[in-house]
């Protein structure tokens, strides 16, 4: 339960505080700050402080058109507790997951635009030396004006920094069905931009065929794990855009060595495959 009174006291600069959502990791509130709608993310106590700091720093340093910038961050005492927080612009819209629930197979031109945005964002991540590691429809926001945003850097990996996940763990941090096999198996030396490319591939595959390909027909999570690690996805056929579809299949390759080796290379292949114009 959030003590709104304590919250208002701690964040005097924010008005109209209202709870938006809550997850295992954080509480998310909507507010206004100097006339602008913002989102306040409060990290729950007991979360890995180092991971959160890393998330905050990663996003703060990022120069990416598709990621909401960090307006403020730090620690504040709320009641008797010190809590980590992040303030970002509020984006009116819905998650891509919500859109897919309404329209499982969006128009092809939207999917191509989505690919363009995700790949360009991935290039920005790569330039900054970070791997998002949790790209999935739930973490994509479609703004009311149609712009696509990438959110939630909760399990971001900073490539130069010491890893937080113990190396001996059999499984790393991932979302089942979107996490690359090497990420699932905690094969740290192999986790780089190629892991994000895999996730992008799965999102695009799902958008093209109308269902999550790794969940379809599975009885339990281990079935899904086995599919992701042991079997390539069934090739898609779309004569009107086969070049783009073949590119999506390459992103979904089980082994990192079979995907484009960098985000920059992936974007080049994508542009070649589609003659896509730059996303707005």
């Amino acid at each position: 339960m959030i003590d709104l009174a304590a919250l208002r006291e701690a964040f005097a600069e924010l008005e109209n505080l209202a709870v938006l959502a809550e997850s295992g990791q954080k509480q998310v509130l909507r507010a206004s700050r100097a006339g602008t709608d913002v989102v306040l993310k409060l990290i729950k106590p007991g979360q890995e402080a180092e991971a959160v700091q890393r998330e905050i720093q990663a996003v703060a340093n990022l120069n990416c058109d598709y990621v909401p910038q960090v307006l403020d961050s730090g620690k504040r005492k709320i009641g008797s507790e010190e809590r980590l927080f992040i303030v970002e612009p509020y984006i009116a819209g819905e998650s891509y997951r919500q859109q897919l629930q309404r329209e499982p197979k969006p128009p092809l031109d939207f999917v191509v635009r989505l690919a363009d945005v995700l790949l360009r964002a991935c290039c920005d991540f790569e330039a900054q030396g970070i791997v998002h590691r949790d790209l999935k429809p739930e973490n994509l926001l479609i703004g009311v004006e149609g712009k696509i945003w990438i959110i939630d850097f909760g399990i971001v990996r900073v490539l130069d920094a010491t890893s937080i996940t113990p190396t001996h763990r059999a499984f790393g941090k991932f979302t089942l069905g979107y996490g690359a096999p090497e990420q699932m198996r905690n094969l740290k030396p192999q986790i780089d931009a190629r892991a994000d490319l895999f996730s992008i591939g799965v999102i695009l595959y799902e958008s093209l065929c109308g269902f999550q390909p790794y969940y379809q027909g599975k009885h339990d999570q281990m079935d899904v794990v086995r599919h992701v690690t042991d079997q390539d996805l069934t090739p898609l056929v779309l004569p009107q855009a086969q070049g783009f579809v073949d590119f999506v299949m390459v992103l979904c390759a089980r082994f990192a060595s079979r995907r484009p080796q960098t985000a920059r290379q992936a974007l080049e292949w994508f542009l070649e495959a589609t003659n896509a114009t730059p996303a707005k």
Partner: peptide, 10 residues
Amino acid sequence: EHARGARLKK
């Protein structure tokens, strides 16, 4: 061709 074709072509 299936596994490496994309990269080998480029």
